[in-house]
Design a protein around this nucleic acid. Structure first.
Lengths: 353, 353
DNA sequence: CGCTTGATTGGGAGCGCTCCCATAATCTCT
DNA sequence: AGAGATTATGGGAGCGCTCCCAATCAAGCG
């Protein structure tokens, strides 16, 4: 038992059993050339027999890099961040990495800095920061440039490698969808103003409105929760001129839906609503919610790609990757009541009804 | 720069700067006694000056244990598992650990075994398995007994250290709540039959029914999704005798809610529904959902407690911890229509209405 | 005063691995 | 045939830390 501390066999044990040097075992393990087939299989057999598994900690010590990827994300059960984290973990594991996450409760500079430091203590191979606020960027600037790092959903203006979903395009599609349905204008219930996601969605909404020459109503601010959507909805529900709402996410939309229901404003008959995220439940809201679906899988893959390029030391040509979300049309969007009425009248006049 | 591979200063650098041996630095770092106050502060100053941070990988190599806790969980955005994972990470980080998670797509023996092996390659200090199926237990039995391991939401019959929420008690409370409202019996839309959670909830529902002498309707099987809840709801909605439903989770309840709505059966007027989990959105369903709220924070704390006891080698007296969920009463439960009718009639007869 | 005791420090080994370099043995080419 | 490249192996150093085992010095005691 060359190894007295832990029960697990070490490389030396394998070497002894196979009658080779530890170096040869290492070569077999790492797929190096210059090992005879016969030797290789002898080593392989010894590995099998002992149930040997290489100690990644020792490897990390000598190489200076673990196979760990650190993720900093917000501590939330929000579908977006969660899906993203899960998707990233999936692709990272498939690529032979292990993911460790630090969830922070608030996205301020200090918490994020601390999380980053802890990751660096672990000698992670790279870091992914999913923290779409400006303060996150400030914290990230603390990290020396030699640690591979990519941001997800960050500031498009900064130079850090960045992967995002195209919030602007998504919001544009949502707003246009509502406009195309015949609404004069579209109201927006936005996410927290320090999130880049919110900002992008506002921007897309606004530019769709402008392009259509529609009047721009004031933004109704909220956070991401159904509760705040409900509050926003209570206000909106008592304004008869509100016939179309683009909510910054699906939970917000859920809250709005309920507020509308309570005041007897029917969706989509009286007011149309579009959400964002396409949470799995959105199809079962009352009514099923039309929403915008980001491709979290694509974001995760892009983030890993960029990160691996940085880890391998490749100069990454493009430091920005964007994926475009798609509109999922369900039942929460319809004709505005006045236009529908006019349409009916017209048909009646033509003797159709 | 005593350290030529990476830019980060090592213990030797600190020692040199402070004019002491590496051993003394180590002692300061680990809070050992027998270090003079003056020496200690000198070392501290050197640490500060260099921005030294101990290399946890090296420490892990020599001690044979990292400060990592491995978690095996299902890859899902289900609120329950996600909240649990987040809560666990929180408490673990507070205790100075780092959490790495392996999410598996299917909870079969092979996937879980693989995840466990990968964790052990990292020399994690302990493992938490959040995988409430029997196959998970089979996989866990592969792990040698010297690696600290605790299960969450597992089989109460097995001997592995286990932390659970009391599904039976929760289901009992939900069912009794419905029975107390005056319903003759309660239907149950259950989760997948290979989850212990489902089994526990079925058990609680059943025993509540028996205790009340109520007739036991057939179980309506589903998975955890809103989609399957909707399908179950479509069936239930066309059965007039169904006036009360206990759904195994909130998403299921959401699907049922919509199916009821579509067929014009009003909740809670015609049929009452109780869910499970208390997802943040449940308060904004139409109508707000009465549900059962498990205490994920408590589960997380208990799991860490048990795990730390095992890590420290303490013989754990109790290897089972259970927390009882609480009923959150909202608007989806009411009197059954026939009884309400009778109540009205009675009141009318008494000349009250 | 010699001898134990405790406080305070340092020196070295070694965790399990990968890297660099040496050593053969075989093959290729002028 | 001898110099060089190519293939196949082993030996040793060392990653940054913690552990074990001295060594030193002051104080305490018979």
């Amino acid at each position: 038992m060359g190894n007295r501390t832990s029960g697990a066999p070490a490389m030396a044990d394998v070497a002894r059993l196979a009658g080779v040097s530890h170096q040869t075992v290492s070569r077999v393990l790492n797929g190096h050339p210059y090992v005879q087939e016969q030797t290789r299989s002898r080593v392989q057999a010894a590995i099998e027999e002992l149930g040997y598994r290489p100690n990644r900690v020792a490897r990390a010590l000598v190489t200076g890099r673990s196979q760990l990827i650190g993720v900093v994300a917000q501590n939330t059960t929000l579908c977006g961040p969660v899906s993203l984290l899960a998707a990233f973990e999936q692709v990272a594991v498939a690529a032979g990495f292990v993911v460790t996450a630090h969830r922070v409760n608030v996205l301020d500079r200090e918490s994020i800095t601390k999380a980053l430091e802890r990751h660096r203590d672990q000698r992670v191979a790279g870091i992914v920061v999913i923290a779409p606020t400006a303060s996150a960027h400030d914290a990230v600037d603390t990290v020396p440039p030699d640690v591979p790092l990519v941001m997800v959903d960050g500031d498009v203006e900064r130079s850090t490698p960045l992967v995002t979903v195209d919030q602007v395009a998504g919001a544009l599609a949502a707003t246009n969808h509502l406009l195309d349905a015949g609404h004069r204008t579209v109201w927006h219930v936005s996410g927290p103003s320090d999130w880049f996601d919110s900002l992008g969605r506002i921007k897309g909404w606004r530019s769709a409105l402008r392009a259509a020459g529609a009047e721009e109503p004031p933004i109704v601010p909220a956070d991401w929760s159904a509760a705040s959507g409900y509050r926003a909805g209570q206000v909106l529900a008592r304004m008869p001129e509100v016939t179309a709402i683009f909510a910054a996410n699906d939970h917000l939309a859920l809250g709005i839906l309920r507020a509308m229901h309570e005041r007897g404003r029917r969706v989509p008959h009286d007011v149309s609503i579009v959400g964002f995220d396409d949470v799995p439940e959105a199809a079962y809201f009352i009514p099923p919610l039309t929403t915008v679906k980001p491709d979290f899988g694509a974001v995760a893959r892009d983030a890993l790609d960029l990160l691996m390029a940085r880890i391998d030391g490749n100069p990454i040509g493009e430091v920005r990757r964007t994926s475009t979300p798609t509109l999922v049309s369900r039942d929460s969007v319809g004709l505005p009541a006045d236009r529908a009425f006019r349409a009916v009248r017209k048909r009646k006049a033509r003797g159709v009804g």
